[in-house]
């Protein structure tokens, strides 16, 4: 029986994928590492599914064909705006939706990305943030933390909304 396995994702396809991720999730601050890790996670996911492998490998190769139509040799040569425009046309395709679904839970679940975004990650082992800035915001005054005990009262039911006898019977 002939082997129906599509060609494995080759280096060119992986390069397209990394570029696609950077265009779809543009963070000028991010180095290539997080995008490459995300690309590898996406490639790793298709091992178990022939359908996803077909979709991904065909999708990545055909990006170059789309780029040629735009007068460039390959997808990676397109400038950001042209590449973004190309992806917008593919937005609803199985190919792009699959990439997006993995990318959004992978790219931002990455220690380096957390650091780049200013998120400090696990904290319990360091004693939480109790002594590490949970209340260090200093551009606003310190607000009240107790419940309000002033002269105003919360009106639970507006006078006009008190049920009339008639509506009680309805």
């Amino acid at each position: 029986m002939p082997d129906p396995t599509p060609a494995p994702i080759d280096a060119d396809s992986r390069r397209n994928l990394v570029r696609l991720l950077r265009v779809a999730y543009p963070h000028p601050r991010f180095p290539d590492g997080p995008y490459e890790r995300t690309a590898d996670a996406i490639i790793g996911q298709v091992d178990d599914s022939l359908w996803q492998r077909l979709v991904l490998s065909e999708g990545l190769t055909s990006l170059d064909a789309r780029a040629t139509a735009d007068g460039q040799d390959s997808f990676v040569d397109l400038d950001d705006e042209t590449a973004l425009g190309l992806l917008r046309k593919l937005e609803d395709s199985e190919f792009f939706r699959f990439i997006r679904s993995v990318a959004v839970v992978t790219l931002y679940d990455d220690a380096e990305v957390h650091q780049l975004l200013g998120y400090e990650g696990p904290s319990f082992e360091q004693g939480g943030y109790l002594h590490r800035g949970f209340d260090d915001l200093d551009w606003l005054p310190n607000p009240r933390i107790e419940e309000y005990h002033g002269p105003e009262h919360l009106i639970e039911v507006a006078p006009d909304d008190e049920p009339t006898h008639a509506s009680t019977q309805a």
Binding site: Y129, G133, F134, D135, D136, L137, L140, N142, P143, I145, E146
Partner: peptide, 10 residues
């Protein structure tokens, strides 16, 4: 009460 954290301050 718990103290005010940063999100609460805003």
């Amino acid at each position: 009460p718990l103290p005010a954290n940063n999100n609460y301050k805003v």
